[in-house]
Design a protein around this nucleic acid. Structure first.
Length: 145
DNA sequence: ATTCTGACA
DNA sequence: TGTCAGGA
């Protein structure tokens, strides 16, 4: 009934996941997938397809291709589900920590920008005021002369 | 028509 | 990751 293909071409997967064949070949270079070869052509199995899906998910989660490779690597090696989950949890924790740090950095810089912006505005209004008084002084002087 | 490798104005 | 080349 479910006649799911036993293998796919590089273009099949590219289409399915909305990426280009170039990306798939690139991921292969990075060791994320290793489709078998039929001569030079790549033959992707359902397992390769699953790994590609996981890789794309990891990318969305912000993991580097190296991290994804490591995670996926033990995903089918270590059959210990708990170990896999623990690793994933560690990775997610680090990702989260990095994001929190970035948010703090951004907030800090934002405050500095706001402070500088304020200084500029004050400096500007101070000059406007001086210019106005200068004009007043000169007009007064002219009147005197 | 499809895919492959290598390279980078 | 894109893209172009030149071959299978």
């Amino acid at each position: 009934m479910d006649k799911q293909p036993a293998s796919f071409s590089i273009s099949d997967l590219a289409r399915e996941f909305g990426i280009t064949p170039r990306t798939i070949r690139f991921y292969e270079d990075q060791g994320l997938i290793s489709p078998r070869r039929e001569g030079r052509k790549r033959i992707f199995t359902r397992r390769d397809r699953t790994r590609l899906k996981l890789a794309l998910r990891g990318k969305r989660l912000g993991f580097s291709l190296a991290e994804i490779g490591y995670l996926i690597g033990m995903y089918d090696t270590a059959r210990d589900k708990n170990a896999q989950l623990t690793e994933l949890l560690n990775g997610l924790g680090q990702r989260k920590a990095a994001l929190v740090q970035q948010r703090e950095d951004i907030e800090a810089v934002l405050q500095e920008v706001n402070a500088f912006e304020l200084q500029c505005q004050e400096l500007l209004s101070a000059r406007e005021a001086r210019k106005a008084s200068d004009a007043a002084d000169s007009s007064t002087a002219n009147d005197a002369v």
